[in-house]
Design a protein around this nucleic acid. Structure first.
Length: 841
RNA sequence: GCGGGUGUGGCGGAAUGGUAGACGCCGGGGACUUAAAAUCCCCUGUCCCUUGGACGUGUGGGUUCGAGUCCCACCACCCGCACCA
């Protein structure tokens, strides 16, 4: 017979059409089957998918297809996080409309995703820029407003002068806009805020229930919420003012030797107004670096204001400093400094020659032990502290708070790092905030029957700033209350609002409301959510908030949207560069501009040697990117999918390599030949292969459910190797059928071809996972390791479940073991049934 | 600086306290071929002269009959960060 090859360029499209025609992946809310909601973070339609998307969606797809094979009704939707700045940037740069640009991008990315054969329910597809979607979002925003969870305030905001927009605190990185990189300015503007802090405790406590989230992500959220408990009290200053401070260590109050305020604290500003040295010092503080690492290594600096602060217990006058290490926006912007038990205070006191008394010690005997060059922030017993002496730290904290409250000069306080979520954006391409400003009636929500408030199509991007503000007619309307002329809100919502509830709309999309409560109850929570670690805090926290808010308003019945979260690693690639002619910089080359051999690389154009750099995240600037389309065109969807699953554990980075994808391609063809040579008439049994097959089925299922795709892949290689070595038999045929079924979630096109070849009925996409025979999961013979003093000396074969005495006798009979023992006295023999025998002499 | 993570062949990585290196890639040898591609077979941690043995999971200790795995101390790299009082 002529040797044929699997031709993905023909097969991929054929099966994709077959799945479409059979509507295999449309989720049915009325199905009686158990449900499974598998979701990958929806993409921003930048125009091209990148290899990271391919990895993300392949993982979700394997899970979705597998769950379907296991009898679940699977919801696996896809849509587009379609609002945001790149569309406006494109509008400005290329003179295209953001909407048109976005729609074009969606069309091309959708085609790319289709070519990968993902089992997606495209009937539920939507883009967040669809007026239908953002209209419902406007209704929800109004609901939140009416529930008291949305408010306006004059606030100092981070103004990005390049993007002409306001940024959330979380979106300012090192004083620069997280997207534009421009130096952020401070401005006062009327802003819309969502009361994230109302749910601070709830969001924190909820983390404990998320036992299927990565520990790392829970910790990041916990730190972000930043709950701390302590004492807030006021010092009476020598100039007659009072200075509120916050401390988490009221137990160390007797160890406080100075007070420090932030450079932008009113007290500091007051001093600076009269003292130009103080003003200069404050200016100097502002020039310092702002990153954590810079601040950590920066020298602690202070300015003595000459003001005294009266210690609430001792009555002593403590000097008040302006200090560069105190932050205005945390607590009260002022601290009682305890140099003995806080490292920053210690460094500061050491520099300025202030006293460093000990008030906490390991035990009472060490009450006057000198410090060893650093503060001791730890636990212990209170010393040198009047009525607190002898108490444990926690006891002393409670005692000081109790006394402060009884005497009325302070109170126990919980301080949160978490702030409310500023959602206003002075930008066109977003959800219009559905409010109307009336001179007499104030700020009113747009009546719901007038939603959606749609974006105007005719907008001008030739100048920066918000086109909605400049539009000649759009903002002019009438007050819904008094009917007088009024103006629309021209701010739009942060795109994180769009992604805070899209997973609900996927599950239920009635026309007249955002979602149907009963239908949501069927699908939610998302059983498996998969995405990048970069969304560990913001998106996931906002989405958690949003579902809680909806629960509080009685619209849904669950608090946590994502039962299980998985954060996948990045796809990386080595870099190729040459030194530029002037020797000053590196010139990078794309992987397809380079010939990569095992011992080096050369440039295709002129054969000159190329430096192979480290394996790092794919980025345009380093040109170490591969184009999914080119790879799919060359190797087909299945080889690419297989590569995405092979070798590297999914939570780790995956190094892309040409050799690796070649290996996947060879395996695709190996399987194809296995299927092509299938002989249905083969007879006979092969007990060992039957065991191997059933053990593999059980193990692969376990691996997929734990998202251990690399291990599932390895097991499938093993079984394939065993099958290829086996003689024809009905057992072998059973193994081949099992392979077809097992690779179906991973390489669905090839698997369909194989299924057809083997005479399977209907589409494999609709078929079941192979059954496991539990009797075949255990071997009847086992290999026993024989050790002498813990070192392997021999192995022997014994029946499964053999008696300890028999194993011991067998082990001692081994010539190799006897040689090793060499006549020494046997003190002990350890026998682990079915595993090993260890002889101790 | 703090928090988290990771260290296993040339590379990606497997190993409920029980035969370290499964599986894949790279590499070497061979078969087939006029030749190549494709495919198939064998070898492939290091060292020693072999049968065979010694060493070997970042480093140093410890627990154990037995440690990649558990404990203590350290080192390196990666990621995150907010000097959080």
């Amino acid at each position: 017979m002529t040797e044929t090859r699997f031709d993905p360029s023909a097969a991929d499209g054929r099966w994709q059409r077959a799945w479409d025609e059979a509507a295999c992946f449309a989720a049915d809310s009325r199905s009686a089957r158990p449900k499974s909601y598998v979701l990958e973070m929806f993409p921003y339609p930048s125009g091209r998918i990148h290899i990271g998307h391919v990895r993300n969606y392949t993982m979700g797809d394997v899970l979705a297809r597998y769950k379907k094979m296991r009898g679940f009704e699977v919801l696996h939707p896809m849509g587009w996080d379609a609002f945001g700045m790149p569309a406006e940037n494109a509008a400005m740069e290329k003179g295209v409309h953001p909407g048109g640009w976005t729609r074009d991008n969606i069309a091309s990315m959708k085609a790319q995703l289709k070519r990968l054969g993902f089992a997606l329910d495209w009937t539920r597809e939507f883009a967040t820029c669809d007026p239908e979607y953002y209209g419902h979002e406007q209704a929800l925003f109004i609901d939140l407003f009416e529930a008291g969870l949305v408010y306006r305030k004059q606030a100092q905001v981070n103004w990005d002068p390049v993007d002409m927009t306001v940024l959330a605190n979380e979106q300012v990185i090192d004083g620069r806009g997280w997207r534009s990189g421009a130096q952020v300015e401070k401005r006062q503007l009327d802003q819309w805020f969502v009361k994230l802090t109302d749910f601070a405790d709830d969001l924190l406590e909820g983390l404990e229930t998320l036992d299927k989230w990565p520990e790392k992500v829970r910790l990041m959220q916990e730190n972000w919420i930043g709950k701390s408990q302590g004492l807030e009290f006021s010092f009476t200053l020598s100039n007659g003012d009072t200075l509120p401070v916050y401390t988490t260590r009221p137990d160390t109050i007797f160890g406080s030797t100075f007070v420090a305020v932030a450079p932008d604290h009113p007290v500091a500003q007051g001093v600076a107004a009269q003292n130009c040295d103080a003003a200069k010092f404050i200016e100097q503080c502002k020039r310092g670096g702002t990153t954590a690492a810079e601040l950590e290594t920066a020298e602690k600096l202070g300015f003595d204001t000459g003001i005294g602060a009266r210690h609430p217990f001792t009555g002593e006058q403590l000097p008040v400093f302006i200090a560069n290490f105190v932050l205005m926006d945390y607590g009260t912007g002022a601290i009682m400094a305890v140099p003995g038990h806080d490292q920053r205070d210690f460094e500061f006191a050491s520099k300025y020659g202030l006293l460093i008394p000990r008030v906490v010690a390991a035990n009472a005997e060490e009450a006057d032990k000198p410090f060893d060059g650093e503060a001791e922030p730890g636990d212990g017993v209170i010393v040198n502290s009047d009525f607190l002496t002898g108490m444990a730290v926690d006891e002393a904290k409670a005692e000081v708070i109790a006394r402060a409250e009884a005497d009325g000069w302070g109170k126990g306080t919980t301080v949160w790092r978490l702030r409310d979520w500023g959602v206003s954006r002075q930008r066109y391409w977003g959800t219009p905030i559905p409010f109307i400003h009336c001179e007499t009636c104030g700020v009113l929500p747009v009546p719901k029957d007038q939603l959606p408030v749609e974006l105007p199509e005719d907008v001008d991007f030739s100048v920066p700033g918000n086109p909605l503000l400049r539009h000649p007619t759009w903002k002019h309307t009438n007050c819904p209350s008094c009917g007088a002329e009024a103006v629309r809100e021209t701010d739009t919502l942060d795109t994180f609002v769009n992604s805070s509830w899209y997973f609900l709309r996927f599950a239920s999309q009635p026309q007249d409301k955002p979602f149907d409560r009963d239908e949501l109850a069927k699908w939610l929570p998302v059983e498996q959510y998969i995405g990048g670690i970069e969304h560990a805090i913001l998106h996931l926290l906002y989405a958690r908030f949003w579902t809680r808010a909806l629960t509080q308003m009685g619209q849904i019945d669950f608090a946590e949207p994502f039962a299980s979260l998985f954060t996948q690693g990045m796809v990386t690639h080595e870099t190729y560069s040459q030194r530029s002619a002037d020797g000053l910089q590196d010139v990078f080359y794309m992987p397809d501009e380079v010939n990569r051999a095992s011992d080096g690389a050369t440039l295709k154009s002129d054969g000159s040697p190329v430096t192979i750099g480290r394996v790092i995240k794919m980025s345009k600037s380093k040109k170490n990117v591969v184009d999914p389309d080119a790879i799919i065109a060359r190797y087909g969807a299945d080889a690419v999918r297989w590569f995405m699953l092979s070798d590297s554990p999914p939570e780790r980075d995956l190094p892309w390599s040409e050799a690796g994808i070649e290996g996947c391609w060879r395996f695709v063809q190996r399987l194809w030949r296995l299927f092509a040579h299938y002989d249905a008439s083969a007879k006979g049994e092969d007990k060992a292969l039957a065991r191997k097959t059933h053990q593999t089925i059980a193990a692969v299922a376990e691996d997929i459910e734990a998202l251990g795709f690399n291990k599932a892949v390895a097991r499938l290689y093993e079984l394939t190797n065993a099958v290829e070595k086996a003689q024809p038999s009905s057992t072998r045929n059973e193994a081949v059928r099992a392979i077809v079924q097992m690779v179906a979630p991973m390489m669905p096109h090839l698997a369909e071809e194989g299924w057809q070849q083997l005479g399977g009925e209907g589409l494999l996409a609709e078929a079941a996972w192979p059954e496991v025979d539990p009797a075949l999961l255990v071997d009847d013979e086992v290999t026993i390791a024989v050790q002498h003093m813990g070192k392997l000396r021999d192995t022997l074969t014994a029946p499964k479940g053999a008696a300890k005495e028999d194993l011991e006798a067998l082990a001692l009979a081994s010539e190799k073991v006897q040689r090793s023992i060499d006549g020494a006295d046997i003190r002990k023999v350890i026998v682990v049934p079915d595993r090993l025998v260890n002889i101790v002499t």
